[in-house]
């Protein structure tokens, strides 16, 4: 198998983390978190991919023909659902922070006063 998908996954993971560490805006930070998560999508999908294989649906192709791995697709689907829930929750929290403090800069916000 080609190493390209692995490199893409590693790149997405790294660049997303770089974004999180240096972010000055929570909305941007949440976007970066989604980028990190998409690294796992690429990793999983490439693990189940076969050149020349069809979709894992046997309605219009004979049983036994070559298809890609349906398990990883189920895993990615679960992953996407989880990601959507977490992102929604994070966005709500950021909205509430903005309402209370008038800023979404992580540097200006600290849990507990100090």
């Amino acid at each position: 198998m080609s190493p390209l998908p692995w490199l893409v996954a590693a790149w997405l993971f790294g660049i997303g983390l770089y974004g999180i560490v240096t972010s000055r805006n929570y909305l941007h930070l949440i976007g970066c978190l989604s980028v990190v998560q998409s690294a796992t999508y690429v990793l999983l999908l490439s693990a189940g991919f076969r050149w020349g294989a069809g979709p894992p649906i046997f309605q219009d192709q004979p049983p036994g023909s070559l298809v890609v791995d349906p398990v990883v697709q189920a895993l990615v689907l679960t992953d996407i659902v989880v990601g959507a829930a977490v992102t929604a929750l994070l966005l709500v929290l950021v909205l509430q922070v903005h309402k209370r403090r008038g800023t979404v800069d992580p540097d200006a916000l600290r849990p507990l006063d100090r």
Binding site: L33, Q37, V86, Q96, V97, R110, P111, D113
Partner: peptide, 20 residues
């Protein structure tokens, strides 16, 4: 409250990264 939300944000982001 402001502190609770900021604490929850830190918790959510670090632990989401962990699950990724």
């Amino acid at each position: 409250e402001s502190s609770a939300i900021e604490g929850a944000l830190n918790f959510t982001i670090t632990n989401s990264l962990a699950s990724f």
